[in-house]
Design a protein around this nucleic acid. Sequence first.
DNA 1: CTGAAAGCGCTAACAT
DNA 2: ATGTTAGCGCTTTCAG
Lengths: 341, 341
Amino acid sequence: MQGGKPPRKPTLSQVAQIAGVSEITASRALRDSASVTQGTARKVQEAAAQLGYLRNRLAGALAGGPSNQVGVILPSLANIVFADVLKGLEDHFEDAGFHPVLGISNYDPQREERLIRDLMSWRPAGLVIAPSNSTSASRKLLAGAGFPVVEIMDVDIDPVDMCVGISHHGAGAEMARHLIERGYKRFAYIGHDIVRDQRALTRLNGFTATLEAAGQSLSATLTLDAPSSVTLGRNGLAQLLREADQAPDVVYFSNDDMAVGGVFHCMSENISLPDQLAIAGFNGLEIGQALPVPLTTTGSNRVRIGQKAAGAILQRLKDGNTAPAAQSIDVGFTLVHGGTA
Amino acid sequence: MQGGKPPRKPTLSQVAQIAGVSEITASRALRDSASVTQGTARKVQEAAAQLGYLRNRLAGALAGGPSNQVGVILPSLANIVFADVLKGLEDHFEDAGFHPVLGISNYDPQREERLIRDLMSWRPAGLVIAPSNSTSASRKLLAGAGFPVVEIMDVDIDPVDMCVGISHHGAGAEMARHLIERGYKRFAYIGHDIVRDQRALTRLNGFTATLEAAGQSLSATLTLDAPSSVTLGRNGLAQLLREADQAPDVVYFSNDDMAVGGVFHCMSENISLPDQLAIAGFNGLEIGQALPVPLTTTGSNRVRIGQKAAGAILQRLKDGNTAPAAQSIDVGFTLVHGGTA
DNA sequence: CTGAAAGCGCTAACAT
DNA sequence: ATGTTAGCGCTTTCAG
């Protein structure tokens, strides 16, 4: 409570001394009481309790022991999507006694590279990363990491090691197919800062490719240079409808946040959904489904992605980290037939 | 990519050798190029780049260097509330180059204690914890931590070191005052597993205390033994209305998730809000405000709590961790005048 | 500004 | 089942 130099924490050697055994025996007793006589284990544990001994994993890991830390690099935490992924990661890591060490790249490749260095400098047991246009230096770091690495969110990539996610190209394509089937003709797209969010761009590419294969095309595209948000989507739709030569009959938004904004604009302008205008999003967020008319969108298994990624790391750690051929896990997406398209 | 024993990573001494300086000089050059001649700094940096040297902070921290890891213990990530707090923490930690090391207690005091031990064994620079009925062992551990500790969410506590949050007692009391003022007479409460969620219980206490001070009381209370959710709130209200001798005219829910469920029940049963029944929640979640009739609730500054907590840790680290008197930061709450009460 | 010595606290490897 | 030896890779003193 008061000032003064911090009293040194009790060390293993002190525990050993009190228990009347060697340091290494104390170490074994504390880590895996099975590798030691019951009596010894008890003595050591008592000594440790008496001293208030607290294991120092810095020393342990430096000496070659295992780490239970896993680096986790995500682009943002403002977006519920990544909070969901983190939840999924925690689900499995927590049970296995592993702890995520978090870094947020803010969609910035330079920052991401710095984070990779930073987290690797703690010699974690593994690394999970949702890449943001990774630099080649980043890829090189990951390739030579020496521990399992999982790139998450997108499987339309050439993974450094393993990857878990969905095909964003496929998701865009499927939505295009659905909308074409519904008979829509005048397609528009409203997106957020797509330069940074590569996965949104990939969806758009899948979307337009499918339109074109069907002899259709985007009649209007609006890309706003800001992070996605409900407000941005709302203003975006207002702007698009104001500026477009001919009103679209359906708008594909870069994600659900944006799309919900679009729905709100329609509500306030008395544009009836989906007759006057149809709207589609991506992610399958709860808020979209809680709307009076649930949003038509693509459900992405975000929690699942986290769980699978954690599972992949843990599995490899159990297998002694013998890197097999690069592995790709597609958790799949689902078309959510809402009422807006 | 292929098997084989992992090649040892380059060490500082190798960098030093190539640069033609001593190990310690190389160390200084890499950490703080200002404490060394420009030329030396350049030579060392080149050598490091050439070797692909990656700092080993395990060794650094063990040798007495600073850590940039901060333990963060939260009860859950399923609840958006804690994702928001984590976002706030990241906002400041990321900029300062610090990384949260995450543990999820699942509202379990035993698990929380294990997590505290586990995270402390990495000798972090600080610890942020949203306590869950902490055991006395947990409190003892935190008290002797030797680094800054912030207990978050609630300021109605006696903090081990510092705390950041709001008064949950006050929040409950204010909502009671508001509802009394509105003229409601028959008050009911619907809560989730309150044994585990102490803060919800504290709000309830503030609520009932205020009712009683005004000569009123809760006419019905329903506490469900499960984590809070929209579905639980919906079923809860159905049950309460079914079983209550006399229908309440207002229901205070343990939080917004629950309250939104209540609103959904009313929608499907054509119970008009707030005339036939009024509803109030807690948190000010986006989903509650996105409802056709926005939810009357208490806004909690969750992101702010995270930011302030991170700020408090960083400040103390800058001040050389000279623990001043225990500090308590109240970020305050706001009554959200929605349309449901 | 640079260096030499010493050691942080622990665990793997090899005995016994 | 337990102990001995050695060293992980770095940084903190303390000197120059």
